[in-house]
Simulated assay, not measured.
Amino acid sequence: MNRGVLKNKQTFAGLQIKKAAVIALVFAASLCAVWREDVLAQSSLLLVTTDYPPYVFCEKDAATGIDVVRKGIDVDIITELFRRIGQPYSIQCLPWKRALNKVKEGEAAGVFPGFKVPERETFGQYLNDPLHVGGYSLFVKRGSEFPFKTLDDLTGKRIGIERGHSVTPAFHAAAKAGKFQVEQASKPEHNLKKLLAGRIDAYVNNHQVVLHTVKQLGMMERIAVLPLPVTQWRPSSYLMISNAAALADKSRLVQRLNQCLHEMWQDGTVERITARYL
């Protein structure tokens, strides 16, 4: 075949693919615009979350003493997502285990941000797209670095994690088998202080979360991150809708959330929101 003809066919095929992608995006955008005018017949939905900077910032209200959600990457994404589908909502900040239990019991419509793990899929439905991507790293006191390539390198060590968080099935299986000891704390700053005090040997958590906290606490010169991550960067944080919650038109709600969140990834909204914090 003539190379010029082949090149023209490839160019035409590429243009057709791009054209199809643009049409699909415009169609999705039009759906979300229509849905804003067609609010589902249900009252405001309660979503639950936990303090997890820079994704979720919870602060204690001076008047009530209750933790309230102020801002964050995932909070801003949720705000825009629910605006696009025209659905009223509220967010309650709780310790992570309590947040999960509220969704499990149907007392809350949804929870974020959480890993997609089989155990949780028994009581909730994850959206197709994540709220953010990330990876887990090991943080140590500077000067106390050690070689890390596999979980075997953690043998005999005390590893700090967030209470109620899931790292990987292999990590938790190794801990259960007694290879290393897991110490739980409720917030990143608590684990970092334990690390500096020598009460744990390493701390594993979301790379961006810990770096943000380290910067905020002025610990950049005292904390080091090991080169090899515990988990590779991947879709890591999702909004999950409760199976037990009594929601009107739940299937349509999930369909709309999926469509409009996908649109937000496609049109650059998620990237722009993330860039404001990192």
Score class of each variant (00 low, 15 high):
P113Q: 12
A109C: 10
D249R: 14
S44T: 03
I78H: 03
T79D: 10
Y136A: 12
N243D: 14
S166Y: 13
T168Q: 08
D38Y: 03
L257C: 08
L192F: 06
V39W: 00
V111C: 02
Y203S: 04
F57V: 09
L154C: 11
P147A: 13
R199N: 11
S237T: 00
V225E: 15
G134A: 12
V270I: 15
A62N: 12
A197M: 12
D38M: 09
L131Y: 06
E145M: 04
A170W: 11
G178S: 06
L100Q: 11
I17Y: 08
A24Y: 00
R276M: 02
Y136L: 13
E271C: 03
A202I: 01
L228D: 13
R84C: 00
Y55Q: 05
W96Y: 14
D61M: 08
F139H: 05
I78N: 04
P113V: 15
K71S: 15
S137H: 14
G14T: 14
K104G: 06
E162S: 11
S237A: 15
S236Y: 07
V5F: 08
V182M: 07
R3W: 10
A185T: 15
E221D: 15
A20L: 11
R70H: 07
A248F: 01
N128A: 12
L211G: 05
V140S: 08
F148W: 11
M264W: 02
N243C: 06
R222G: 01
A175I: 09
H190G: 11
I161D: 01
E121Y: 03
T150A: 07
N128S: 15
K18C: 13
L6C: 08
F180V: 14
D152A: 14
E107N: 10
Y52G: 05
V26A: 12
Q266W: 07
T11D: 14
Y55A: 10
K194Q: 12
N101C: 03
D74I: 09
Q232C: 01
I159Q: 04
N258L: 08
R142C: 01
P169M: 09
A109K: 01
L46Q: 12
